[in-house]
Lab assay of single mutants.
Amino acid sequence: MGFKLLSKLLVYLTASIMAIASPLAFSVDSSGEYPTVSEIPVGEVRLYQIADGVWSHIATQSFDGAVYPSNGLIVRDGDELLLIDTAWGAKNTAALLAEIEKQIGLPVTRAVSTHFHDDRVGGVDVLRAAGVATYASPSTRRLAEVEGNEIPTHSLEGLSSSGDAVRFGPVELFYPGAAHSTDNLIVYVPSASVLYGGCAIYELSRTSAGNVADADLAEWPTSIERIQQHYPEAQFVIPGHGLPGGLDLLKHTTNVVKAHTNRSVVE
């Protein structure tokens, strides 16, 4: 069995187990497998329904001669939608809004960016022009300005110390501490036991640490421990890039980060 097929099978099995364990909360999309990078042309966006009122959005972007996937989250909030992270750029984010209108038909009224990198804030200006209120932590807003990236308009308070959590509509926002970046936030959907790890969490097929220019490698494993301790009931975990899975993604990420750190020390 090929690795790609095995990865998709694991996603399907995880979703099936969740649907059985929580039949009222989960209505997993039966329309197909989780979209992969090879299936999404740059400039297009796919939506994948995880649970009743919960979707991931998947886009792709060219970077350094390669094409990478990027995940975000959409959560229903009454007759409105909360968006977590842009679709990595203005063109993708405009396509995301169009796809949401086509498939869901509810307005996106608020959006949260989970850290300051372009795959999370690139497209904020498109959201703002569409009347979406954009939010991020003060740290993310400051770092985005320093980096020359787009800056969300509103500040999220109460997320300055490791372990801080605040309720934001249908989700809980959690600051686990520094990891992929010093400002990275985690998003949890309690009604569906869905954990969105953003770039602080890796997919299972990833074996290298990737972009760690703004990471705190020493603190990252401790931050992941905080996530595990705060959300032990999480059933569906979405990484910032690639295929979702279960809580095993947290341990896998820790292993990859520690291996990278150990290699760096040896070198």
Rank of each mutant, 00 (worst) to 15 (best):
G2I: 07
G2T: 07
F3Y: 10
F3T: 10
K4P: 06
K4W: 06
L5Q: 15
L6R: 08
S7C: 14
S7F: 09
K8H: 06
V11Y: 07
T14F: 07
A15T: 11
S16Q: 15
M18I: 15
I20Q: 12
D29Q: 10
S30M: 15
S30Q: 12
S31W: 10
Y34F: 15
P35D: 08
T36D: 14
V37E: 15
V37A: 15
S38I: 08
P41S: 12
V42H: 10
G43E: 08
V45K: 04
R46Q: 09
L47A: 04
Q49M: 13
Q49V: 12
V54W: 03
V54G: 03
V54A: 06
W55D: 03
S56Y: 15
V67N: 15
L73H: 04
L73W: 01
D77W: 09
G78L: 07
L81Q: 00
L81V: 11
I84M: 07
I84V: 10
A90Y: 08
K91A: 15
T93H: 05
T93P: 00
A95M: 14
L96S: 00
A98S: 13
E99K: 13
E99M: 13
I100D: 01
E101W: 08
E101R: 13
K102H: 15
K102A: 12
Q103M: 14
Q103R: 14
P107A: 11
V108S: 01
T109I: 13
T109R: 14
T109E: 07
T114L: 00
H115F: 00
F116L: 04
H117E: 00
D119H: 01
V121T: 06
G122H: 08
G123T: 05
G123R: 05
D125I: 04
L127Q: 01
L127C: 01
G131S: 09
A133F: 11
T134Q: 01
Y135C: 05
Y135D: 02
S137K: 08
S137D: 01
T140Y: 06
R141E: 03
L143V: 05
L143W: 08
L143D: 02
A144K: 04
A144Y: 05
A144D: 03
A144E: 04
V146Y: 13
E147R: 14
G148I: 04
G148M: 08
N149T: 09
E150V: 04
I151Y: 02
P152T: 03
P152I: 03
T153G: 10
H154S: 10
L156H: 05
G158F: 07
L159N: 01
S160W: 10
S161P: 06
S162P: 15
G163T: 07
D164W: 05
V166S: 07
V166T: 09
E172P: 01
E172A: 02
L173K: 00
F174A: 01
Y175P: 01
A178D: 05
A178Q: 09
H180E: 00
S181P: 03
D183A: 01
D183E: 03
N184P: 01
N184F: 02
I186P: 01
I186L: 07
I186R: 01
I186A: 09
P190S: 09
P190I: 06
S191P: 07
S193W: 10
V194E: 01
I201R: 03
Y202C: 04
Y202M: 15
E203T: 06
S205M: 08
S205N: 10
S205G: 10
R206A: 15
S208Q: 10
A209K: 09
G210V: 04
G210M: 04
N211F: 04
V212R: 04
V212Y: 04
D216C: 04
L217R: 03
A218T: 13
W220V: 02
S223K: 01
R226C: 02
Q229F: 11
Q229T: 12
Q235Y: 08
Q235I: 10
V237Y: 02
V237E: 02
P239I: 04
H241V: 01
P244Q: 04
G245R: 04
G246V: 05
G246F: 05
D248E: 14
L250P: 06
L250S: 01
H252N: 08
T253M: 04
H260K: 13
T261S: 12
T261V: 14
R263I: 13
V266I: 08
V266M: 14
E267N: 09
